[in-house]
Amino acid sequence: MIYTVTFNPSLDYVIRAEELVPGRLNRTTHECIYPGGKGNNVSVILSNLGLKSKALGFVAGFTGESLEKMLNDYGCYTDFIKLKEGFTRINVKVNAKEETEINGQGPVITNEAIDLLYEKLDQLEEGDVLVLAGSIPNTLPSDMYERIMARLEGRDIRVAVDATKDLLLNVLKYHPFLIKPNNHELGEMFGTTLKTQEEIIEYAGRLKEMGARNVLVSMAGDGAILLAEDGSIHSGKPPKGKVLNSVGAGDSMVAGFLTGYLNTGDYEKAFRLGVATGSATAFLYWLAAKEDVVRLLNEDPKKFGL
């Protein structure tokens, strides 16, 4: 089973407008509400590509109930911990010539709730996959990722981590199966600006030396680079298309990579499916469906286990 953890999930209110003028009444031209949070995005894409996952995390109030129902409607299993106070946050994503985001704060997560999450994670079995994605709310210990991975160490559970800077660097000693920084985040980890593909490969290699098994570096319009566990290096440009939305593209790349690898055991195919899935989401106003990904592959989807 694949599990995803989203500590501070959301309902994403995604709107489009002709323009956004601060201090004035603005009217939308289109609006939708989606389940949000990086781990939940991964779960939805996995479901779209044919793999079941179970979404873990914390929810509260009527918005938490709506989030859980939406994920179930998208074919995801859920096993959220329900908090007694507060409500699951609402994030506003505005597409009006440029992207603007307003993210809510979210509910307070108690020590009791954290212990309940640990109990659920203790039930993971050998061969399971766990995706830890996103930031840590300020109501949680800043080393939550480390605590979780230390708890799972030695149990042959493949952990994928999509986080930034110290959150990512501090878990490398636990040998995560996959990490996915973008090129800017990779440079920030080492206090430098990476300008060439050779530099990106060099510093991604340092993350492997520090413990990561596979390092997938996303580079927006410049594609991605994978330094795989078997020593191979893969790079590729994204398919051509108009970028409509960057929210969820990185999560989609993670989900595509995991789908490709779990279906085929082949790192090159996993990489190519990851790039296609991330691009497919970027060319839409929300997460890509299977047919959107297949269209960009330009190959028999059966090669990728789809």
Score class of each variant (00 low, 15 high):
T4G: 04
F7E: 01
F7L: 15
D12T: 03
A17L: 13
E18Y: 07
E19H: 10
L20V: 15
V21A: 01
V21N: 05
P22Q: 08
R24I: 04
N26S: 10
H30L: 04
G36N: 12
G39W: 01
V42F: 04
I45A: 11
I45D: 11
I45M: 14
L51M: 15
L51Y: 01
K52G: 15
K54H: 12
L56C: 04
L56S: 10
A60Y: 09
G61C: 07
G61H: 06
G64Q: 14
G64N: 14
L67A: 02
D73H: 05
D73R: 07
D73Q: 02
G75K: 07
G75W: 08
C76R: 09
C76S: 13
L83F: 10
E85G: 00
F87C: 09
K93G: 07
K93W: 03
A96D: 05
K97P: 02
E98Q: 04
P107I: 06
I109W: 11
I109D: 03
I114K: 13
L116T: 13
Y118F: 14
E119I: 06
D122T: 01
Q123I: 05
Q123V: 11
E125T: 14
E126Y: 10
G127W: 06
D128A: 14
L132A: 06
G134E: 05
S135M: 00
I136C: 13
P137G: 08
N138Q: 07
D143Q: 03
M144W: 05
E146V: 08
A150K: 13
G154I: 13
D156S: 13
T164M: 04
K173F: 11
Y174K: 09
H175Q: 12
L178E: 09
P181N: 06
N182W: 06
E185H: 00
G187Y: 02
G191M: 06
E199C: 05
E202Q: 12
Y203P: 02
A204N: 02
E209P: 00
G211Y: 12
G211D: 12
R213M: 15
V215L: 07
L216P: 09
M219R: 14
M219C: 12
A220F: 01
G221C: 10
G221Q: 12
D222T: 00
G223W: 09
G223P: 08
A224L: 13
D230K: 02
S232D: 00
I233P: 00
P238Y: 04
G241V: 12
K242F: 04
K242H: 03
N245H: 09
N245W: 07
D251L: 12
D251K: 01
M253N: 01
F257Y: 15
L258C: 07
L262A: 10
N263D: 00
T264P: 11
T264S: 09
G265R: 07
G265A: 03
Y267G: 04
K269D: 05
L273T: 02
V275W: 01
S279C: 05
A280D: 01
T281E: 11
A282G: 05
F283A: 14
W286K: 02
W286D: 04
A288N: 10
A288P: 04
A288H: 10
A288E: 09
K290V: 07
L296Y: 00
P301V: 11
